[in-house]
Amino acid sequence: MSYIAEILPPLLQGAVVSVELFIITLVLALPLGLPFAFGEMSRFRPVRWICKIFVFVFRGTPLMLQLFFFYFFFPLVLNIDIPAFPAAILTFVLNYAAYFAEIYRGGILSIDQGQYEAAHSLGLSRAQTTFGIIVPQAMRVVLPPVSNEAITLVKDTALASVISMSEMMRVSEGIVNRDYNLTAYVVAAAIYLLFTFLLTLVLNHIEARFSTYTRREN
C-alpha cells in the first residue's frame, strides 16, 4: 500500500500529460476532420485527391510509424527541432482527423437526398443547407463512431511513450524497470480504465441529449 502511495504521484503526473494529449488532440482533430470530409467530396479534382490521399496515408500506416516520422525524420529533413509533445500532438491530430474525416463523410452521405431537395426548393444557399440542415443531422449519425474513436484515443496516447514523451505509460515503464515490480502497470491500467469509464459516461450523456429526435423520417 505504501508502495502504491509512493509511485502514485509520478504516475498521476504522467496521467496529466496523457489527458492533455487526449484533450488537445480531440479539440483540434474533431473540427479538422470536417474540411477533409468535404474535401473528399469536393467537385474539384485536385482538392478531392489531396484529401483522399491524406486520409489514405494516415489511416493506412501505423500510428507508431507516424510518430517516428514526425519526431525523428521530419525534424531531420527540415533541420528544425520538434520536442516530443508537439510532435505527438501533430501526429495524433492528423491521424485522428483522417479517421474523423471518414466518419463524417459516411454521416453526410447517409443523409437522404430529399433533405437537399427540400432545402433547394426553399431557396437555401449551399452553406445554409450544409450547416443548417445536413451537418446537424449527420452529427447524430456520427456520434457513436466518433465516441468509439475517442475511447480508442485514450489508449492510443500510450503510444506517445515511443518518442520518449513522459505520459503515463512511459512513467509506469520507468518505475517498473527501476523497481523490478509490476505494480505500476496495474495502477496505470486502473487509471486508464477510470478514464475510459468517465469518458463513456460523458459520451452517453451527449448521445442522450442528441437523441431528442430519431434519425430518419418515413
Binding site: 430529399g114 433533405q115 427540400a118 426548393s121 426553399l122 443531422q137
Partner: peptide
Amino acid sequence: LKQVISETGMVFQHFNLFPH
C-alpha cells in the same frame, strides 16, 4: 436563380421535413 426558386414552394411525396 435562387431568388426565382425561392418563389416556388414544393411538397414532396416523402414530406422531407427537417427531422432535427
